[in-house]
Every structure is written in C-alpha cells, then in structure tokens.
C-alpha cells in the first residue's frame, strides 16, 4: 500500500507534482501514466524519500519511506536501469545493495537466476544492453522479496520478448498479493498490463480508476463516415444536434476525407443521410482505445506538443 496525500514538489517556480493524492492497493498492477514530463519519476522519487516534498506526505506500508527498518524487504524499486557503475559486475552491484540490508549473497545468486543473468553475472555491466540492465535493475528490486514493487518505465528500450517477460513478471507479482506500481508513457503497454490506472498530467491527478472506467470516461464514441457531399452532411448533422469534424483516422480504416461525428449514433447518421439524400461511402463506429482516451484526457497537459502539419484539425464545411 502506497498512500500520498496532497503531495507537491516545486523546483523554483516550476511545479513538478501538484497536490497529488492517491492510494495504490495490493494485488493489482497499477499503471502510472502521463506524458513525458508529467511528474511520474518525481512522484516515484518522492515516494522513495529521494526528494523531499514541498508539501504533503507519502507513506509506504504506513510509514514514511526513510523510516522503514529494512527498506529492501518492504519496497523494491527500479528507477533507472542504467544507474549503476559500468565498471562493476552485475553480481558485485547486486551484492553491494544486498549487504546494506543484511541480505545474504546466496539471494543475489538466486535473483540473478530469476532474471536469467547467471551467465553474465561476473561481466562488467558497461557492455550490457538496455534490456540486460533492466534485468539487473529488476533483480535488485526483487532482492529483499518485498511486498511493494515500483518500476519506472521498465519496458523502455526492450525487445518484444523482454516486454512480454516484464509484463508476465509484474502480473504474477500482483497475483501473489503484492503492490505493483508501473509507470509508463506508453498507453498501449498499460492496456495489456495494468488493472488500475493513475493518470497525471503536468503534475496533477487526471484519473484514478480501473482501465475500463478510464475508457468509458473519455468522450463518447464517434461515428466515422466518408461521403462525396461533406458540407451537406455536416449541415444535416448540425441541425440534428451532432458535431462533425475531420476524422483523425489513425488506423487508416476509412481513408482520406473522412468525417467523425459525435453526439449521434451510427443508425441516426444513416437515417439522416438517407433523409437528406446524401450518399455515404463508409459508415462505422470507432472504438475508443485506451491510447485515444489518454490523449484526450492529457491533451491540455502535454508540455511539448507538435503542431499538426498539413491537415486541418477541424472540419470546416467546405468541399474537401
């Protein structure tokens, strides 16, 4: 269990984490989501007492992290896989961590086996791939067999095999009743891994709910159409109380010049077109993916947003 109340962190005039309150429950994988720069890593550093909060508190298993008697036995954390001395072997790295908490060397060999690094245990970590470094980091988190695990962007830079391995590992850790917090800026990844979501943007809490609720809470599903008479259709839709806009059509199902209609069902759109004698070349309902829901919710909280080039962001009613 991790509990934050009013957690705030300011760096000068920048607010990295803004009045965050949440509690992370055991037994499920909690995805910690937000665009780059949203404050995920800062929040994790606050949880681990690496940074002092400007306001608010965070407790781990009922205590401030710094007061845990044997932190590795209670919390395992992977913040930055590359954060180890390149001249040190994986085994020496893990051993020096284990020794701080009185964990025996035999456990070091055991976790090296769990993450599949026994063969390279004595190699200097300088030459490790990012995937191997992630495994060392995860081995470090598992050393104390803790009930709470935190992983910051654990699948970054991993190949599909590695991603699948981490996903399975996190799910099995949660299934054993542990608290698992995983941060990511990749929505598609969370869709496959997490049961619960905490979404932040610009340091503020945007959502704290189950994945299905998160998708449902996003804007209504849209009807996608393609027609040679877009201005006539959008006028008809407007008079029926719906809104039309140029479809983003990321999946490329409908093709160019598609229109996205909100506020009306697929059947209503069909009836409307029929009544106005408008020819439709495509009619479907788009499924809102977690990724789209995330983009909608965090749209105003993205720090660095690229301009959309060469494509109108709103349907303007003229012939395309």
């Amino acid at each position: 269990m991790i509990e934050a109340i009013g957690l705030t962190k300011r760096y000068g005039s920048t607010v990295a984490v803004d009045d965050l309150s949440f509690s992370i429950r055991p037994g499920v994988v909690t995805g910690f989501l937000g665009p780059n720069g949203a404050g995920k890593t800062t929040t994790m550093r606050l949880i681990l007492s690496l940074d002092k909060p400007s306001a608010g508190t965070v407790r781990v298993g009922g205590k401030p992290y710094a007061q845990l008697a044997s932190p590795m036995r209670e919390v395992g954390a992977l913040l930055d896989a590359k954060a180890m001395h390149g001249g040190r072997s994986a085994r020496s790295h893990l051993l020096c961590l284990a020794q701080t908490n009185g964990i025996p060397a035999s456990r070091v060999d055991e976790v090296l086996g769990i993450v599949g690094l026994t063969n390279v245990a004595h190699k200097r970590s300088k030459g490790f791939s990012l995937g191997m470094s992630q495994r060392v980091g995860i081995a470090g988190a598992l050393l104390g067999d803790p009930q709470i695990l935190m992983f910051d962007e654990p699948v970054n830079g991993l190949d599909p095999e590695g991603i699948r391995w981490i996903r399975t590992l996190m799910q099995s850790l949660a299934a054993e009743g542990r608290t698992v917090l995983v941060s990511s800026h990749l929505m598609s990844e969370m869709e496959n891994t997490a049961d619960h979501l905490i979404v932040i943007g610009r340091g503020r809490l945007i959502a704290d709910c189950g994945i299905s609720e998160f998708i449902a809470a996003s804007q209504h599903q849209a009807v996608l159409v393609r027609t040679p008479q877009p201005s006539a259709l959008s006028a008809a839709i407007a008079s029926a109380g719906g809104t039309a806009s140029a479809a983003t059509d990321a999946a490329g199902i409908v093709g160019e010049a598609a229109i996205e209609i909100r506020g009306l069902t697929q059947d209503q759109v069909a009836d409307l077109a029929f009544a106005h004698g408008i020819r439709l070349q495509h009619l479907s309902t788009s499924k809102v993916s977690l990724e789209q829901a995330f983009m909608e919710l965090t749209a105003d909280s993205v720090d660095y947003q690229a301009n959309h080039l060469g494509r109108p962001t709103a349907f303007n009613g003229t012939e395309a």
Binding site: L48, S49, L50, P71, M72, D80, K82, A83, M84, G140
Partner: peptide, 15 residues
C-alpha cells in the same frame, strides 16, 4: 555515484 546515478539506488536501499 552521482555521475552514474548509483547514488539514487544507494539511498533507496539505505535511506
């Protein structure tokens, strides 16, 4: 430890 980032790990395992 600061240049490699190891310090954060060191202070996490022993706050």
């Amino acid at each position: 430890e600061y240049s490699t980032g190891m310090m954060r790990t060191s202070l996490t395992v022993l706050p």
